[in-house]
Design a protein around this nucleic acid. Structure first.
Lengths: 208, 208
DNA sequence: CAAATATACTAAACACTGTTCAGTAAAAAA
DNA sequence: TTTTTTACTGAACAGTGTTTAGTATATTTG
């Protein structure tokens, strides 16, 4: 009987409807200003309905953070063709920085805001890990490993090198997203140029 | 007449009382859970009273963020004696990382949470800049400049080098504070060791 | 087909949040 | 002593996330 399947489809459609509305509002007004009540109003349902599809606000935003990772990973795919791993590494960095600058709200949710990680912690136990983070990190880790194998970078430990590479680009963009470069008293476009210049310097330093 | 002076003292005492209570609660329960109402209750005043001393919650937390910077700067002072600027640079990094790990709530407020920067933006115009950030950044900038003068590091531009140095350590600790190293599936003490190892690698890469 | 059950949904409440404002009591100045 | 200023608050406004009891509707069962 197709009824149970149709119901499942309906359920999924409703879930998508919620996520879609939430995402649109989140991208326009940010995390804090996107309330369950507002989302409910937008899709013309009661706030309580959202809780039939998501355990809490954190879980809803875990779903949205997943969309962000799918976007980032899609952009990352374009580097697969680059044979030279250190050039690929640099390109991963450029894509990462540009993603953050073009989608600051998504970036915030993926790497700064606590909400999605809170949701993840509860899911843990049933073998679940942070699949999105894992996929992205693996991409970096493998590229770094190739660099080491081909003796293109000075660091020997791929974990340490992956860590400081990720941390460096994350630091560069997150200080911008959370407004800390005010200290440098430079116009925004000037800052953005410095981000890529910093990345290039770092990659240069890493080279053997 | 000393009345006006006594009143000013009283006013300052009350301000301190609020900041102190807020700080204690903030360090225990974090930013989100520290509410104006809770603070008011702790000091046995009405919530409205707090608004006679601070424009809003952001301004109150700007004051607390200042305390954090004073703590950090005090710890930074200890490096002044290190003659070799690159050793000093490394020590600045170590202090920065350890400060973040030992005072994650303060660090969060100083470099991640939006609140204090929101308050700062409103203060701008009356020549005010982010004095705390500026003092800290200047310390780093001058050390980097010395490194360049003595040809101890490879990067020529002190602004770029300061930027990626700061960003790197910030990235390292902020990914920890905001729980993103879950992806590496390592115990916390293992992660903390990797932070310092990453810093050491980075400093090594920078050396001529 | 009628009765029983399961599903999808919501109104209303709970317990909070930051913030404002009219009103009050006490202190200081006139 | 009267007036004015200061310090403070009760209560309200407009929100927040979340839970629960209750209600229609759809589906399944006898």
């Amino acid at each position: 009987m197709g009824i149970v399947e149709r119901k499942e489809r309906d359920k999924q459609e409703m879930r998508d409807k919620i996520v879609e509305a939430a995402t649109r509002m989140f991208l326009e007004d940010g995390y804090e200003k996107t309330s369950i009540r507002n989302i409910a109003e937008k899709i013309e349902y009661s706030p309580a309905t959202i809780y039939l599809y998501f355990k809490d606000k954190d879980e809803l935003f875990y779903a949205i953070h997943g969309i962000g990772f799918e976007m980032l990973l899609k952009e990352m795919e374009t580097v697969a063709g680059i044979k030279n791993p250190i050039k690929r590494l640099r390109e991963i960095g450029v894509i990462y920085i540009n993603f953050a600058l073009k989608n600051p709200e998504y970036y915030d949710l993926m790497f700064i805001i606590r909400a999605p990680m809170n949701s993840l912690k509860e899911k843990m136990g049933d073998d679940q890990c942070w699949k999105y983070g894992e996929t992205t990190f693996t991409l970096l880790f493998q590229t770094v490993t190739e660099c080491i194998e081909q003796k293109l970078i000075r660091t020997k430990d791929p974990l340490v090198a992956s860590m400081y590479t990720w941390a460096s680009v994350h630091g560069l963009v997150s200080l911008q997203i959370r407004d800390r470069y005010q200290v440098m008293e430079l116009p925004e476009d000037e800052i953005k140029k410095l981000l890529i210049r910093s990345l290039d310097e770092l990659i240069d330093l890493m080279k053997t």
